[in-house]
């Protein structure tokens, strides 16, 4: 039980791009439960990598900016090389909760599923704005129609995978279309998945970096012409 309280067989992957002001706190908080945090610095120009390293993360540095999808795949491959049994993907801007990640890993440990997707729409804790809600809803409808996996929240950065699931992923969408791609590959590999209610904390900071409608157009193009 002792080792389960301290998840030393779990690796938390944090894709990182110019988040120097918040990533230190995110990594320190994560490390109170998860000793191994892999921060994938995607060519940040604000010293994010140094901040993450000082906070105790294993930092993997992309020599050039490649995009969040590429950073996730790099982090997952690093986690596998480190011998992780469970891999959690966690955003670097502080919008996810460590306790949610712990609960999701617990569900993997129970053998209930190979993949646990975080969903902000399973309970009423998360309150996205109107436009954000509309864009997310459209993304959910599209993703459910094209991937064959029916989720209530398709663009949530908080996920937990066991080693088998993590090894089957091959994220090729470098930029934002990776969220749908992960779901599609999970469906195609016939992995067992469940959704877990998570709380997304929309701070002024995360809102200032939020996704615009232009991104939706870009994602759609990337999904058609891949």
């Amino acid at each position: 039980m002792a080792h389960q309280a301290l998840h030393d067989d779990t690796c938390v992957v944090v894709p990182l791009y110019n988040e120097a002001t918040v990533v230190g706190d995110v990594v320190r908080d994560l490390r109170t439960s998860f000793p191994v945090v892999v921060a994938v610095d995607d060519g940040s120009t604000d010293g994010s990598a140094a901040v993450a390293r000082a906070a105790g993360a294993v930092v993997v540095e992309h020599p050039i900016n490649l995009g969040q999808g590429a950073a996730l795949q790099t982090g997952i491959e690093t986690a596998l090389r480190l011998g992780a049994e469970y891999v959690v993907t966690f955003d670097s801007d502080g919008q996810h909760q460590r306790v949610d990640a712990e609960a999701m890993v617990a569900r993997l440990r129970s053998g209930e599923a190979d993949v646990v997707f975080g969903s902000r729409f399973l309970d009423a804790r998360t309150r996205p704005g109107l436009v954000k809600r509309a864009v997310l809803r459209a993304a959910i409808v599209y993703s459910n129609a094209t991937t064959g996996v029916h989720l209530t929240d398709t663009h949530n950065g908080l996920r937990a995978l066991n080693r088998r699931a993590a090894s089957t992923l091959r994220i090729r969408q470098n930029r934002m279309a990776h969220a749908s791609e992960i779901i599609e590959q999970v469906g195609r590999a016939r992995l067992r998945w469940v959704e877990h209610p998570v709380h997304i904390l929309y701070t002024d900071y995360s809102r200032s970096k939020g996704q615009s409608v232009f991104n939706a157009v870009n994602i759609l193009t990337e999904m058609i012409y891949r």
Binding site: V38, H62, P63
Partner: peptide
């Protein structure tokens, strides 16, 4: 797009090898 994919694989290999030597 294909070239970008190749660059990605190359950059990833460099990054991972540097962080966690085999």
């Amino acid at each position: 797009r294909d070239m970008e994919q190749q660059i990605t694989l190359l950059a990833r290999r460099i990054a991972v090898d540097e962080a966690v030597p085999r």
